[in-house]
Amino acid sequence: MKVVIPFALIFVGLAALIAMGVTQGGIPELQVEQVLAGEYPGREVKVHGFLESIQSGERPLRFKVRAKESPDVMMDVVCDRTKPDTFQKDYDVAVQGYWNPDDNTFVAEQIFTKCPSKYEAEAKEGLGSPDMVLDPAAADETSN
């Protein structure tokens, strides 16, 4: 019993804080199509996509984010922040902010790009079929 009471108190306290945190501070994660369809207008959301193009690299930063599933669907984004170093075309990007339906633009307050060591899987996808391996003997000859 001596152990159960403090454990229960800690558990209940923690559960209450988590519930309070996620209900008040949780941010819906959306895809580009959902934002364009008008879900959560004016409310803070996080949107995932690929960086399509950069219209202005100076502040305010202006760029287009492409939908992950539908390559033709784009969302205009404006952000009064510095351009991140790993901000390159076709890279995975997430923007946090709100959709402004008046000028059909997403106003981003934060941009999330990935740590440079984590692009390996995507990079590999572009390297061709793994079953097309060259003759190892030739590899040895050329590279040594």
Partner: peptide, 23 residues
């Protein structure tokens, strides 16, 4: 949240701080 609320909800630094700081 995706599993139970049918929508992914992310949590940021303030939520972690709110939950963890008292502990």
């Amino acid at each position: 949240s995706m599993e139970f609320l049918d929508r992914p909800i992310s949590v940021n630094v303030p939520v972690y701080n709110l939950v963890c700081t008292p502990f």
